[in-house]
């Protein structure tokens, strides 16, 4: 007898086209967000913001309304959407270059206002789409196409730790950093993503998830090596965990 044990979430398009590289964690992250939208039964009232970077073609896979933002401006666009349609569920799906570099101002201010939106940030320590340049989260010593001898803090500063900043911002209601490097980690990531959506649905404030994700193409690693890097040096600098949880407090 056949038993259905695994199916595509409704919040993923039937004709989805995955535009990510093989071995990249984006695919898992997208699926988790879609599962959460399904479980919360909010797909039909969700508006997503696609940001510039690898997630720019979000409308190719998310089965929800999507508006594209200019590079870094996702949280400003999300603010405009949510304030105009307060009954909708609004999320941004951004890379670390988009959120923590060019869009850090929009990020901090939207969260300072406590915009009732959810932000998923994929931190892979590089500008993936443009070919692996150093970004705001590039680790010390990491070799990229613009730090060819490894990131030297004297020349290009230090990696920016977004969760540590955003937990101090009064308007955030849930802030967590997660990984996708094991089944347990993936289950935990999904729990956190769900809470980040509950933060907006309950009107508590902004929900923020930073996902430490692989970029095997630009890291020039196999997927296994890439996950080891996430577990190892990346997690040492960017410590996974729940940084703020007003959602559980509210329950």
């Amino acid at each position: 007898m056949e038993q259905l044990v695994y199916k595509k979430p409704d919040s993923i398009r039937d004709d989805f086209k995955i535009t990510f590289c093989p071995g990249c964690d984006h695919g898992i992250a997208v699926r988790l967000v879609a599962e959460v939208l399904d479980e919360l039964s909010v797909r039909e009232k969700t508006i997503g913001i696609a940001s510039v970077g690898c997630s720019v073609f979000s409308y190719d896979f998310f089965n929800v309304d999507i508006v594209e933002a200019a590079h870094g401006r996702s949280l400003a666009v999300a603010t405009g959407v949510k304030r105009s349609k307060p009954d909708k569920v609004v999320f941004t799906y951004q890379g670390d270059g988009d959120l923590a570099s060019i869009g850090l101002g929009e990020t901090i201010h939207a969260m300072t206002r406590g915009e009732k939106v959810t932000t998923i940030c994929i931190n892979n320590t590089t500008y993936g789409m443009t070919g692996g340049q150093a970004g705001p989260t590039t680790l010390i010593g990491q070799v990229t196409t613009t730090t060819t001898k490894g990131r030297d803090p004297q020349l290009s500063g230090y990696p920016l730790k977004v969760c540590e900043i955003l937990k101090e911002v009064d308007g955030t209601a849930f802030v967590a950093r997660v990984t996708l490097d094991s089944p347990a980690a993936i289950l935990n990531a999904k729990k956190c993503i769900k809470k980040a959506f509950e933060a907006q649905i309950k009107g508590l404030g902004t929900g923020f998830i930073e996902i430490l994700a692989t970029c095997p193409t630009n890291w020039k690693m196999t997927p296994q090596q890439a996950h080891e890097r996430v577990r190892g040096e990346m997690s040492e600098v960017f410590k996974p965990g729940i940084y703020k949880d007003r959602v559980s407090e509210a329950i």
Binding site: R83, S84, K88
Partner: peptide, 15 residues
């Protein structure tokens, strides 16, 4: 910069 992009978001909902 934020204001014009908020406008983009608002406008995209048809208001």
């Amino acid at each position: 910069v934020a204001a014009i992009n908020m406008l983009l978001g608002a406008g995209s909902t048809g208001v």
